[in-house]
């Protein structure tokens, strides 16, 4: 199976998180050491300011890969859509 290198993903930010980060999303080339959702979150927090604040450990942030909820240990792969959002409030 051929592998696209470096892998790239589509980031999506929703609801209050989008408003505070000032971004609805971006295409991102995955740094080679970032393999899981938890590592991606930590890497984004490294941008500082509101990124560090909103994505700090302990802040309630949910993540979905390709439209399915995942936890911090989930693997991020080339072509994935990775969405970060606050706990949901529908219903």
């Amino acid at each position: 199976m051929s592998e696209t290198f470096p892998p790239s993903i589509r980031l999506v930010f929703l609801a209050r998180l989008r408003d505070v980060l000032g971004s609805a999303g971006e295409d991102l080339t995955l740094p080679s050491h970032v393999l899981t959702v938890g590592e991606l979150r930590g890497w984004l927090a490294g941008r500082g300011d509101h990124w560090a604040r909103e994505l700090a450990p302990g802040r309630a942030v949910r993540v979905a890969i390709n439209h399915s909820l995942v936890d911090a240990g989930a693997t991020v792969s080339n072509g994935d859509e990775v969405a970060f959002f606050p706990p949901v409030t529908g219903g």
Binding site: L14, A15, R16, D19, A60, A64, L69, F85, P86, P87, V88, T89, G90, G91
Partner: peptide
């Protein structure tokens, strides 16, 4: 279904008044 929808379905509510708006917290 309602209990799972309230915690897993990706909807978010925002309340608005004349003085501004705020996101509802889970």
């Amino acid at each position: 279904i309602m209990d799972y929808l309230k915690t897993r379905a990706p909807f978010w509510k925002k309340e608005g008044t004349a003085t501004g708006s705020r996101w509802v917290e889970a």
